[in-house]
Simulated scan of single mutants.
Amino acid sequence: MAATTAQPMGTLPSGVGICTTFPDLFYLPELVFGGLVWILVASTHVDPPNPLGWVMFVSVFCFVMTFLCMVIFSSGAHKNSSGWAAVDVAYHALAAFFYLSAGVALAYITVLQGSFQNLKIHRIDIAAVVFAFVATLFYFIHTILSAIRWKNF
């Protein structure tokens, strides 16, 4: 039986601890699904570019910011302060809201363009919508768990 080392309540993980503790375990799935949305949306061309511009902004912004947060936490630059716990909650709440709005816009465009595109592009758009909502779910769960950690800080 393997021994597990639990983080004390009110501490932020650093180093490899971000790969073994909740909510920080969600960084990698957020990066994977956000990156998939980014790749899938970039691989298709849809006639009204404005909503897809928002989707691309959200996916690129959240990918970069999530990666930066992951690097900050893994390097220990946060120095275990409650300010970083608040930043973690605020960022993930904003990212969940952004991905929800991007997923709704992408779903709307996919439904509108469904009968006018070829089947391959339509399937790629459907996959992008699904991955956007999965990313929303991961960011939302991360927000809730980060808020609980911040409350106990």
Score class of each variant (00 low, 15 high):
residue 107 A to S: 10
residue 63 F to I: 00
residue 58 V to P: 08
residue 92 H to L: 04
residue 42 A to I: 00
residue 50 N to L: 11
residue 79 K to M: 13
residue 80 N to A: 10
residue 51 P to F: 04
residue 74 S to Q: 12
residue 81 S to P: 08
residue 94 L to M: 14
residue 52 L to D: 06
residue 59 S to M: 02
residue 59 S to H: 05
residue 92 H to Y: 05
residue 82 S to R: 15
residue 39 I to R: 00
residue 89 V to D: 07
residue 100 L to S: 09
residue 53 G to P: 02
residue 51 P to K: 03
residue 84 W to P: 07
residue 64 V to R: 03
residue 81 S to E: 15
residue 49 P to M: 11
residue 99 Y to K: 04
residue 44 T to D: 04
residue 84 W to Q: 09
residue 94 L to R: 07
residue 78 H to Q: 10
residue 82 S to A: 13
residue 73 F to S: 08
residue 78 H to W: 12
residue 112 L to V: 11
residue 77 A to S: 14
residue 69 C to A: 13
residue 62 C to V: 11
residue 114 G to N: 13
residue 98 F to E: 10
residue 46 V to T: 11
residue 81 S to D: 14
residue 37 V to E: 07
residue 44 T to E: 10
residue 112 L to A: 12
residue 59 S to E: 04
residue 63 F to Q: 09
residue 49 P to V: 11
residue 97 F to D: 10
residue 66 T to S: 10
residue 113 Q to H: 07
residue 92 H to E: 13
residue 103 G to W: 00
residue 79 K to F: 12
residue 81 S to K: 12
residue 101 S to R: 06
residue 114 G to L: 09
residue 65 M to K: 07
residue 113 Q to F: 08
residue 83 G to N: 14
residue 88 D to M: 09
residue 53 G to C: 05
residue 114 G to I: 08
residue 77 A to T: 05
residue 108 Y to D: 13
residue 46 V to A: 09
residue 41 V to Q: 00
residue 54 W to R: 05
residue 47 D to T: 13
residue 51 P to L: 03
residue 92 H to C: 09
residue 101 S to M: 13
residue 92 H to I: 03
residue 54 W to T: 09
residue 39 I to D: 07
residue 52 L to A: 01
residue 83 G to H: 11
residue 48 P to Q: 05
residue 106 L to F: 01
residue 84 W to G: 08
residue 55 V to E: 01
residue 77 A to C: 12
residue 40 L to M: 10
residue 60 V to H: 05
residue 51 P to T: 00
residue 45 H to R: 09
residue 45 H to E: 05
residue 114 G to T: 05
residue 64 V to A: 15
residue 63 F to T: 12
residue 58 V to T: 14
residue 82 S to M: 13
residue 89 V to Q: 08
residue 52 L to W: 05
residue 59 S to K: 03
residue 54 W to D: 07
residue 65 M to A: 14
residue 93 A to W: 01
residue 70 M to Q: 13
residue 83 G to S: 15
residue 36 L to I: 04
residue 83 G to K: 12
residue 49 P to Y: 08
residue 54 W to F: 14
residue 82 S to N: 15
residue 74 S to K: 03
residue 86 A to M: 15
residue 104 V to D: 01
residue 60 V to M: 02
residue 88 D to K: 02
residue 40 L to Y: 03
residue 80 N to C: 11
residue 48 P to G: 02
residue 96 A to P: 03
residue 107 A to L: 14
residue 95 A to P: 06
residue 92 H to F: 10
residue 101 S to L: 14
residue 65 M to E: 12
residue 73 F to V: 03
residue 41 V to L: 00
residue 96 A to M: 07
residue 103 G to V: 00
residue 70 M to G: 13
residue 71 V to Q: 04
residue 103 G to D: 01
residue 91 Y to F: 15
residue 103 G to E: 03
residue 62 C to S: 15
residue 72 I to P: 01
residue 66 T to W: 11
